[in-house]
Write a protein that binds this DNA or RNA. Structure first.
Lengths: 228, 228, 228, 228
DNA sequence: GATGAATGAGAGTTCATTCAT
DNA sequence: GATGAATGAACTCTCATTCAT
């Protein structure tokens, strides 16, 4: 663990089965709809706005999606699949110690959650989850679940190295994700004013890395951390 | 810390400046509007529904509130003030050790966050925060801020007792609140299926208590915790 | 029967229980809707057209009637009640012989059925009956049924006088109504070109009167008719 | 007239000038359109539904017919020609007396008018006649007119036999057709509940046969009928 | 102060029709 | 000739808001 090395998170296979032809319009609609839904929420968005933004007629919307709800479902699936999970998956980290590694992961995770896109996606999913039963499943399969799985694999990676010790790595992963919401993400979601400078993010992430090692680190690792 | 004692959280003064007369109707409207807004969201709620639920005419709504947005603002303020903060404030805890105390606090906090009311309030605030600039301030002053302040005082209480050590008790409080979202709260907000039985909540809360002491406990406290 | 006399058909009591106030708008809407529905049929009529013709806003339509179908139902009921039945009921006939009496009745009945209003009402009821189950009942209670009842009473009046003989006066009434559709009404409903001059109507009605006596007249009456 | 004999109604020449090739699609479209128009009416039917039912693309509809109205016109012509007139024409009757003969004819005619197809055709023609000027002519030439002509020939057949006497056989035919609507047909068109059992139809038809002879029968025939 | 009828803009959705393939 | 995606006008219906009573 004291040798600087390139570590790449395990990537998940990405489905690319979309038929190429005639899905241009669908893509165009999804892009427009994503923009409007994320801006205005489900109820706040109007099909006219979406048609306008997507540069298609309202009728075309209904040729491709049965109704507003179906379009919304497709939008969430597309966003969950394309935006959240890959962002975590394709990370490459450079870290010396375990605490630093988790600090870097936290930094990356926090940065993503603070971006306008993922932030709005969070808002709309939390807001609409009760009204769209399928939404939870979609988001789990393509978004949250995959992120959690990535985190878990990451933790298992450190367990193998003897730096982390836990009987429930999934719970640890969830705890790590929860920790990443400390201060910045949590406040941002309430639109409370925050200092989201890179330094501040690094500072919070650093504390999260240390906290995680304090909770789950082996004694050896904790001793090493105390010295650093 | 090893003597069982009744500990009451510090309570904050409650403003009671409401004029008594003629506010019955206002109260009635707020109650109706709260129910509808929490059920349907801001855009999803209609003034007709609200008037109906509040047993008032639509005109009366506009006699008391300038428009839908103003009514919504008043609803959020009322809910933030009356539901969230007091729920934490009025707690009485019975605890032996520091870890147990925080576990109990976590248990209480998680239970509240899982209740339908606070859950819906969270959804609507997160969803509408970007569209209502005042909302963040309102929620901070009456809800989140006060809860955070309570938590902070609670942590300072344990710092004085020598069980907790930190240079930034507010950050610690925020970290504790973040930890409380591990698994149950986080998943519930996405409407993912969870086991929200009392035992499960206590289990998660127990882990959170231990984690918190692992992060912030003094060496003495950590040693005591390790023995327990 | 050979003495000229004023005979008035039995009139049915008319309900006037409509509350006077605040039904002006309803009346206004019904008038507009009747005009449009009769012109364009149910599907062909649009709520915008109706609102326009009734000189009210579209919203007002929906304040008074739940939806288009309900408005249509109300229109049919109003027309059935106010236009068809009374037209027959309030008739006063001057007749010498039985055949003449039925000829006069036929003349009046045919004239009504050829008027634009009743003609259009017939068209729309026949057209929409399968799609509006309640419509048949409404039309029966306020329109067809009452007309048939009036006709039946009229026939019984002549049975008492010994001019008509039948064991089933209702069937006779229905047969009389069917006869009244000979040539003019039947063709008019198909928009075939007809001569609807007063003389032509009187000619057809005269044949119907004679035919009816030929079918149902007592021998005495038939002998009288043959002489005339 | 007292000898049982097979009597066949005079048939009218049928046009078969349809070009054979490439009219399969046209036939396919007409079949689909007939089904939909009869179910839903003109305004209620959509070109999409029709295309779907006809197993054809929407574009093909417009390759064969200029627009919805033209397609509707073609449908009515096809139905008038193929369904109504032939049904009457191809009848073979077995009758002893004149009254029986007309009773049988009435029975057949009533049965046809009560069938779903002709009933729906009647509804749609009566409903749309004012909006489609050509429709009346089409229906006259291929439907009503031919039926009336058939009926007239039939009456002239009985005039020649000395059983019927009238100076206007066309009017008599129209009166017979009107009589056939007594009770059953008339009520069915309003969707009023009726007993349309074979016995009931035969009963009504019997009365109509007798009525017709009562109106138009020669004295000899009436005497014969009175004995029967 | 309370009412609820009236408003008209705008929501989601459907439709007859066109046209590039 | 057959297709079906694209169109935009028009449809039914809802909404926040007003105002005479």
């Amino acid at each position: 663990m004291n040798k600087k090395e390139e570590i790449s998170l395990p990537t998940t296979e990405e489905r690319q089965e979309e038929s190429v032809s005639c899905n241009a319009k669908r893509r165009q609609i999804l892009d427009g709809a994503e923009a409007i839904f994320l801006e205005s929420g489900y109820e706040g968005a109007s099909m006219s706005q979406i048609a306008c933004r997507a540069r298609v007629s309202k009728g075309t919307l209904y040729n491709h999606f049965e109704n507003k709800a179906a379009l919304f479902g497709a939008v969430i699936e597309d966003l969950s699949r394309s935006k959240l999970a890959p962002a975590i998956c394709q990370s490459h980290l450079t870290a010396i110690t375990c605490a630093e590694a988790f600090a870097q992961l936290a930094e990356r995770f926090i940065s993503i959650l603070l971006q306008p896109g993922p932030l709005r996606l969070y808002r709309i999913i939390v807001s609409e989850a009760p009204h769209f039963p399928d939404l939870a499943d979609t988001f789990w399969r393509h978004g949250f679940g995959r992120t959690l799985s990535t985190m878990t694999q990451w933790i298992e990676f450190w367990i193998e190295r003897g730096a982390i010790r836990t009987d429930d790595p999934v719970f640890a992963a969830e705890q790590f994700m929860a920790l990443c919401q400390t201060r910045l993400v949590q406040r941002k979601r309430f639109e409370l004013p925050i200092d989201s400078s890179e330094e501040q993010i690094r500072f919070v992430a650093g504390r999260i890395g240390k906290a995680f090692v304090a909770i789950y680190g082996t004694e050896a690792e904790q001793a090493a951390a105390r010295q650093a």
